[in-house]
């Protein structure tokens, strides 16, 4: 036996799974609006009046079907933020960057998104989305939300 061989303690493997997830009508329309018009759509619940963004086909609060749209934002208020320092595989931006929860004007829920690592990004600050030039129909068609000066 080759003495250079290490003791066998682990077996390594990489498994890659591919998916093509159906967006459904509601999420599909939301992503199309981001891509084609640069607008942010929320779903309106006829049952309890909740305006949810990102939108859903159902209202998690009251169980009604959501079929109606409201355009919200584009500006909103930062409800919370977190600062990411370390890079990781699949990170949406080069670190450091910030996660933000933004309550867009006219919405009852907050949208999770990104912000630059700028000390002006604080709770209560008004932010506006910066859309990418080339858009693909993804939540990241908004690059991030930047504080208003």
């Amino acid at each position: 036996m080759d003495e250079a061989q290490p003791e066998l303690g682990q077996v390594e493997a990489v498994r890659r799974n591919s998916y093509a997830w159906s967006t459904g009508e509601i999420t599909g329309a939301f992503l199309e609006a981001l891509r084609d018009r640069g607008t942010i759509l929320a779903s309106l619940c006829r049952g309890c009046g909740t305006v949810a963004v990102p939108p859903n086909s159902f209202c998690e609060a009251c169980g009604s079907t959501m079929r109606d749209w409201r355009e919200v934002g584009p500006r909103g208020v930062v409800m919370s933020w977190a600062r990411v320092e370390a890079p990781f595989d699949g990170a949406p931006l080069e670190a450091p960057f910030r996660y933000v929860l933004v309550r867009l004007a006219g919405a009852d829920t907050s949208i999770l998104h990104l912000a630059p690592d700028d000390d002006a990004v604080r709770i209560g600050v008004t932010v506006a989305p910066e859309f990418r030039e080339e858009r693909t129909g993804s939540i990241t068609d908004i690059k991030w939300f930047v504080p208003e000066v």
Partner: peptide, 19 residues
């Protein structure tokens, strides 16, 4: 659609809640 493209993990979600 809404969370994964942003890379959210349990630690960052926790940090948002802590703040």
């Amino acid at each position: 659609f809404y969370l994964r493209p942003l890379g959210l993990d349990a630690l960052s979600a926790g940090a948002l809640q802590a703040r």
